Each structure stands twice: as structure tokens, then as C-alpha cells.
Simulated assay, not measured.
Amino acid sequence: MTSFSLQHQAFEPNWFAALDPRTRLLAAVFFTLSALCLSALWPLIALLALALLLTILLGCQWRLIIKRLLAFEGFMVLVLLFLPFTVAGKPWFAIAGMEASYQGVIQALVILLRGNAVVLALLALVGSMEPVKLGYALAGLGIPEKLVQLFMMTVRYIGVLFDEHQRLRTAMKARAFVAGSNWHTWRSYGHLLGMLLVRSMERAQRISGAMRCRGFNGKFHLLTPVKWHRRDTAVLTLAVLLFLLPLEWQWWQYGF
């Protein structure tokens, strides 16, 4: 039975693992904002190269990175296929009587480069962070307490629900269930979702009772509050300056 995890493994340098988690989260936010402000191809290529450099320096495992990128690239393929034919502009080429505009192709490439750069940066900066540490970082940044609690509970029990789903699927296979395009298959999947929902509600009630027995009053107490140090300021400043370089290039080269 495979386990479910929201993070990917990485051989992080010691100095990076010792940073305040808010540093990594803020660096990811600044990188995303920089990518959203870019609209020229060469600065976006430079930003993508910077994201690739981050994944190398921070010890990300390329096998897992590529695996998680495949799902994103599936959506990007649709953008590349249809966007050039839906954006008005100077005709570039035609397929089956449909004309693709030069502006549409450029816009599709911009979206492709921007999306891949952001995804790689998020996987490098935040993807290897423990979910609990990410929750502490969100709380330290002043995110509403209810949202942080919801995130922490989701992280804690989404794996439990995934294991429950796997057990139900194993039970179906033990009864010689074979998926197909027929009424029996859809009815079986409906029963699977129904049983998963019922068991989730039962488990939620047991968890709620156990938390009340331990004195839970609706407030999560952080066991190890995050602390900001001078090295965090230095690393975040350096990261922001690096992320601003493609923006400066776009400004001086293209004037926007």
C-alpha cells in the first residue's frame, strides 16, 4: 500500500534547512510576483533558469520533480494547442483552415515559461518543507488562525483518508472487481465514494471527541514558535534582489 505525502524529498543544505520557514515562504511569494510581472520571453527564460538553479542548489530530487511536473505539463499542452488559434493578431501559420496568430503563440510561450518557473520555484522553496512547519510559517505571517487550523487538520488527516481509500480499493479488487465502462462500474465507484464519506464522518466524530477529552477549546497552540534571525533577513534580501534581475532586464531592454 502506497502512502500519501504532500511534500517531496530533498537533500537540503544545512544552512537552508535551518532557515525560518517564513523566509522560504516569502521568497516563494516574491518569486511568483516577479514571474507575474514579466511578459517578455528572454527575461522569463532567465527566470526559469534561476528556478532550475534553485532546484539544483537546494538538493531537489529530479525524479520526483519531473513526476510532479507531468501533471502540470498536461494542462500546458492544452494551452499551447488552442491559445494560438483563439488570440487575434498577425497570422503565422494555418492548420486545417484555422489560422494561428503570432501574438497567440508568443502568449502561449509566455504562459508556459511563467508557469514552469513558478512551479519549479515552489517545489524547490516550499515543496520540501514539512507541512507542519509550513503551518507554523503561515501562523507566523499573521494568516487567520482558523485557516491555519484548517490547513493543519487537512495535512494531518488527508493521508489517513487516502489510506482508507486504498483499503476500500483493495477490498474491491479482492472481490474480483474490474473497472469498465458499464453501469456496474459506476455503481461500484458510487458505493466506494459513499463508504469513504461515511467512514470519514465517523472518524471525524471520534477525533472531535478525543480532542475534547484532551481539553481542546478551539485554539491550536504552537509547540515550537518560529524565530526570525539575521541570516533570514540576509537570505531573503539576496533572494529578492536575484528575483528582481529579470524585471530590471525587461525594464531596460523592452521599456515595460
Rank of each mutant, 00 (worst) to 15 (best):
117 A>L: 08
161 L>M: 05
143 I>P: 05
177 F>T: 10
143 I>W: 13
80 L>W: 14
94 A>C: 05
142 G>F: 00
175 R>S: 07
131 P>M: 06
174 A>S: 13
104 G>R: 06
173 K>Y: 02
148 V>L: 15
78 L>H: 00
94 A>D: 12
113 L>Y: 04
165 H>D: 01
88 A>K: 07
105 V>C: 12
188 S>W: 03
92 W>F: 04
107 Q>D: 11
138 L>K: 10
129 M>V: 08
187 R>H: 06
185 T>C: 08
76 M>D: 08
160 V>Q: 04
97 G>D: 13
174 A>L: 06
76 M>T: 04
187 R>F: 06
147 L>V: 14
119 V>C: 00
87 V>Y: 12
118 V>Y: 01
149 Q>M: 15
159 G>A: 07
140 G>Y: 03
129 M>L: 11
158 I>T: 10
191 H>F: 12
117 A>C: 09
158 I>V: 15
145 E>D: 11
175 R>W: 10
190 G>Y: 05
83 L>R: 04
167 R>L: 04
169 R>G: 06
111 I>E: 04
81 L>A: 11
138 L>A: 14
123 L>Q: 13
119 V>D: 04
162 F>I: 09
82 F>V: 10
134 L>R: 09
149 Q>S: 15
81 L>Y: 05
168 L>K: 08
77 V>M: 12
85 F>D: 09
160 V>I: 11
96 A>S: 11
163 D>S: 14
104 G>M: 01
190 G>A: 14
79 V>C: 12
105 V>R: 07
106 I>M: 10
95 I>P: 07
123 L>W: 15
178 V>Q: 07
168 L>P: 08
175 R>E: 05
169 R>W: 12
